[in-house]
Design a protein around this nucleic acid. Structure first.
Lengths: 198, 198
DNA sequence: GTCTATATGTGGATAGAC
DNA sequence: GTCTATCCACATATAGAC
């Protein structure tokens, strides 16, 4: 609590690593991916530009943990949204709706996931976190389809469709966030009900 | 033809503007949006860094014309793909397939459209070009739906779904480009056939 | 662990010569 | 219309002091 008062020599308190992550999140949220620089993050955290290098190998390393945080947060939200309904088809629809909502509410965090340009083969933890998102859809899809391969196709179709709707809202192609969520959910239901044709 | 030989004083021939656009396309194709700088483009075109400013107000102005070119090229391709089939539902499916194909074949040009971060309200010609793409889908959608509002919802759903599939291939979530195209087309057919539920 | 200072690189943009 | 020269801002990253 009083860690801000005393400055032994260096200026920071116990957990600069976390403070940097938080500052980085703020920067990305405010200025987007392009505005994310270690220099800016350092300024926000109130430390010198050299300090981060004791906690992260380089700019990319910090960026990668941000992406991971975004995946975790998304998973948490989609999981919660899906838990509110019982029917498998409605779970998929709830996912689609929540997906669009996240994109709108946490735009930069959402874009980070796709635009960060990190090599996922070189960072298996990211690939895994991404796969975990789709994993949420497997159970309902399987309940709908029965067949494994068909279920997987349904998962991908629903997720892709949700993603498209999310991007279109952000681009201004789709009008209101509210309508966009409804339409994404409708599309998910349609795909689920016609899974045989996928 | 011999314009490269004589150098009156300045180094370039008749149409530096076009040469800059072409060079910029190459840069974006090779190094993506992040690699697009006026300095690099100038190097490619073989002129000094000051030269482009006689033809484009600034970096953004050149970028905007690239985005416009991307839209035009996309429109050309989708139009051609749709023209090859007669059935309205199949036209939508052909669009979805061509959309994914473009994303894969011309990745940087595709990403440019969405990631350039240009304000479309400030650049109406871009908004118009984007709308023209969706415009390709209006006629088939109307043939399927009859009702205007429903047709528009179908257009958006098909386009969003195609976009999602395109992004997922680029991300490596969907496996092969070939399967991805097929699945995008299938999803489009499903949405079209169930337009009543959208 | 954090700082200060610095090396190095890069890009955007303009002024003025030709 | 193009060049050369230059300014300015800014970022990444490291070395060495404390």
């Amino acid at each position: 609590m009083d860690s801000e008062v005393k400055r032994p020599s260096g200026r920071h308190h116990g957990d600069l690593r976390r403070a940097l992550e938080a500052a980085a999140m703020d920067v990305v949220a405010e200025k987007g991916l392009a505005g994310f620089t270690l220099a800016e993050v350092s300024r926000r955290a109130g430390v010198s530009v050299a300090a981060p290098y004791k906690h992260f190998a380089d700019r990319e390393a910090l960026l990668a943990t941000l992406v991971l945080r975004s995946y975790e947060e998304q998973r948490r939200r989609y999981r919660a949204a899906m838990a509110r309904v019982a029917d498998p088809v409605e779970k998929l629809a709830a996912f689609a709706s929540a997906y669009v909502r996240f994109a709108v509410d946490e735009r930069s965090l959402f874009e980070l996931t796709f635009a960060a340009g990190l090599d996922k083969r070189a960072r298996p933890e990211l690939a895994e976190a991404g796969a975990a998102l789709l994993g949420l859809l497997e159970a309902p899809a399987h309940a709908i389809c029965g067949d494994d391969q068909r279920a997987h196709r349904l998962v991908l179709a629903v997720a892709a469709c949700a993603h498209g709707h999310a991007v279109f809202v952000l681009e201004g192609v789709l009008d209101g966030p509210r309508d966009a969520r409804r339409q994404a959910a409708s599309a998910a239901r349609v795909l689920a009900n016609a899974h045989v044709a996928l």
